[in-house]
Design a protein around this nucleic acid. Structure first.
Length: 645
RNA sequence: GCCGUUGUAGCUCAGUGGUAGAGCACUUCCUUGGUAAGGAAGAGGUCGUGAGUUCAAUUCUCAUCAACGGCUCCA
């Protein structure tokens, strides 16, 4: 007999060789029907795997991440079985679970899979799932496994085997499909009741673009049809918030083939948002002691050799323009220009921290396949600034920048983000990162300490630093789940040396400053793209391109509507009158659809009483106010940059 | 850049080897209406672009441009 202890502290005795499934059954049949996997001494096991020693046991169901992962991993195997049944001779790479669903990378050889095939594969999967085939775990010696896949001619699984230790090699079989797999798996395929194969995509083998491209098939499965339906509905809802869709509906931006890929044309509505953001940034930066500068979009080759951009960043730069025997580059970042400004006049320690800010226009050659609406573009406007400071001043300056983020995030109500400490990769020193190993470690530690000291939760990620130093990135997710860096706060120990920047310290000696690169509002492009999704187009009043729409009941009240409009315009409010000969219901409907925060309905009643009837977007009738009251209220709401409700 | 899909009116989308349709938007007229769509008429597209096959191409083929889903890469 062995002792099995449960999360609640209970300990019960079972025969050695008992499975988690047996134990679940001994508790209740209902529970047994839901168990997908087991946690045995903090390892995830098959619920059907015999337990032979005293153990801690957790039972995982669909409600646990471990349960879902196992479910989706098993679903990947089920899909593989269906693929093998339909396409003979395919080879499989890996099929892991994802946050939502799973994929399998396959080499289809000469064959091709199309969207139409997905429906057939789903059908086959459903058929196989209904057979309640159990997932059978077997162990093999490495030599046997190698022999097995050599005979099969499966170079992918042989490659996987290379990195596995002998004695731990497991296979799983369900129905007619056997795969090299660490597991674990759900008890049988019958748990999988609802299946949707979502897309086909190419994926480089091992994620290396030099390797062959495999076919990746994505899918998602659920224990019930309802959950699948809910998931698909949720996806549809998310698509409605997509900034590309809302951006078009609200006339925020457009693109044009003749202008070029990734080059955004900001329409008047989008430009209003840009100007409001710049106003906020300029106020905030002025208060924080930044000075503003303006620099050109171009610079000569030599500067980018000095800065390190050409050695480390050339792939992201547009090719040079030649003029009078000189090569000129469009700037991918503002920093080199700013360094020249720092260097334009001698600096003493009294001038530091020297903070210069610019809404700089940068051009980056992003590969065509990476462009994505406003989130990934080739011409971007950065909320940029550089702080030149001493080592002693660094922590305080860096903290002040972090505080600035948080202040902005509060204004915008941004609360779903991940702070990422982005570190270098020592293996890529000299290629992707400047070759100064000690300075990397030293500055990374400085940044880490600032984060710890301020109690900011963060994750550390290797190989995400800038070429000139470590950084903190604020990661956000688009509605369709893509991750982006929204804001960034970076240390640069490299460029001040390469540019020979110095200041005179208190001992009358030259000293090299540290540089902080920071962009709390990121770029206009990405920030507004994010905001469109964040607010689903329902901007707070201060940001809304049109803040008030006056809706006359009929054109008899056009004069009064004009009086109202004029009063608002005088207070700096963005206001229009709907002058069309339409019924009020239609005017309201269209104002609602265009997401104008305030609709003011004016007719007989209002005109005689010198009032307006207020309707708040998304909320409906908000009662009557005098013109003066309303003007005062909205002016205050705008001034305070009140959050969207 | 790579793999795959797509490209028809301002928008959303039908459709066809014999030079195109719907709804909404737009224009005009009627209507002057009180909190999410009043009625009628009209205008609008050489079907992304270029070549090829064909008596004939928007439809088939190829190339190219762009968008979308991923991969790789990154604010």
């Amino acid at each position: 007999m062995i002792n099995i202890s449960f999360p609640d502290g209970a300990v019960r005795q079972y025969e050695a060789g008992v499975t988690a499934m047996d134990i679940a059954k001994s508790i209740s049949e209902g529970l047994a029907k839901k168990v997908l996997a087991a946690g045995v001494n903090n390892q995830v096991w098959d619920a059907s795997r015999p337990i032979t020693t005293d153990s801690h046991l957790k039972l995982y169901t669909w409600n646990d991440a471990e349960g879902k992962n196992t479910f989706w991993h098993s679903s990947a195997h089920l899909m593989a079985e269906a693929i093998e049944a339909k396409f003979s001779g395919v080879k499989f790479w890996v099929g892991p679970p994802l946050d939502n669903g799973f994929y399998y990378d396959v080499d289809l050889g000469d064959k091709k899979i199309t969207e139409e095939d997905l429906a057939e594969l789903e059908k086959k999967m459903n058929e196989l799932a209904k057979q309640n085939n159990v997932y059978i775990r077997t162990e093999k010696a490495k030599a046997d496994a190698i022999a097995y896949f050599t005979e099969k001619g499966d170079e992918y699984k042989l490659d996987l085997l290379q990195n596995l230790e002998d004695g731990n090699i497991t296979f799983y079989t369900q129905g007619n499909f056997t795969d090299l797999c660490r597991g674990p798996h759900i008890p049988h395929t019958g748990f999988i009741k609802a299946i949707k194969l979502t897309s086909i995509a190419g994926a480089f083998w091992k994620g290396d673009e030099k390797n062959k491209m495999l076919t990746r098939i994505y899918g998602i499965t659920f224990p019930t049809q309802k959950e699948l339906d809910d998931y698909l509905t949720m996806l549809e809802e998310a698509k409605k918030r997509d900034h590309r869709k809302i951006g078009k509906e609200l006339s925020i931006f457009t693109t044009n083939e003749d202008v070029g890929q990734g080059l955004i044309l900001w329409l008047p509505n989008g430009t209003i948002i840009i100007e409001e953001l710049e106003k906020l940034a300029k106020e905030t930066e002025a208060a924080a002691g930044y000075k503003r500068v303006v620099t050109p979009h171009l610079a000569k080759e030599n500067m980018y050799l000095t800065s390190g951009h050409l050695p480390y960043y050339a792939d992201s730069m547009f090719p040079p323009m030649e003029m009078d025997g000189e090569k000129y580059y469009l700037k991918p970042m503002n920093c080199p220009h700013h360094h020249k400004i720092f260097d334009a006049e001698p600096k003493s320690y009294r001038d530091l921290p020297y903070r210069i800010a610019e809404y700089g226009t940068c051009y980056r050659y992003e590969q065509s396949g990476e462009l994505f609406g406003l989130m990934r573009v080739r011409c971007l406007h950065m909320n940029d600034a550089h702080i030149y400071c001493t080592k002693e001043q660094f922590a305080q300056e860096f903290k002040a920048v972090n505080a600035m983020y948080l202040k902005y995030f509060k204004i915008f109500g941004i609360d779903k983000y991940v702070m990422r400490l982005s570190l270098h990769n020592p293996e890529k020193l000299g290629q992707k990162y400047v070759n100064q190993p000690e300075l990397w470690l030293e500055t990374e530690q400085m940044v880490r300490e600032v984060l710890i000291e301020t109690g900011t939760p963060f994750v550390e990620v290797q190989d995400e630093a800038a070429f000139y130093g470590p950084k903190i990135d604020v990661q956000i997710f688009s509605v369709i789940g893509r991750e982006f860096t929204l804001a960034t706060n970076q240390v640069d120990f490299a460029q001040s040396r390469s540019f020979n920047l110095s200041f005179t310290n208190q001992n009358n000696e030259p000293e090299v400053p540290l540089i902080i690169h920071r962009a709390p509002l990121g770029t206009h492009e990405r920030f507004i793209g994010f905001l469109l999704e964040h607010y689903a187009g329902n901007f707070p009043v201060w940001l809304a391109p049109l803040q008030v729409k006056v809706l006359p009941i009929s054109d008899k009240f056009m004069d009064y509507a004009t009086t109202v409009k004029t009063a608002l315009q005088k207070a700096g409010v963005r206001v229009e009158i709907d002058e069309r000969q339409e019924k009020i219901g239609k005017k309201i409907r269209e104002a609602e659809i265009s997401k104008v925060p305030y609709m003011l309905i004016v007719g007989e009643k209002e005109a005689t009483e010198n009032k307006i009837s207020v309707r708040r977007h998304g909320k409906g009738d908000a009662g009557q106010l005098s013109i003066d009251e309303f003007v005062h209220n909205i002016a205050e709401e705008i001034k305070q940059r009140k959050a969207a409700e």
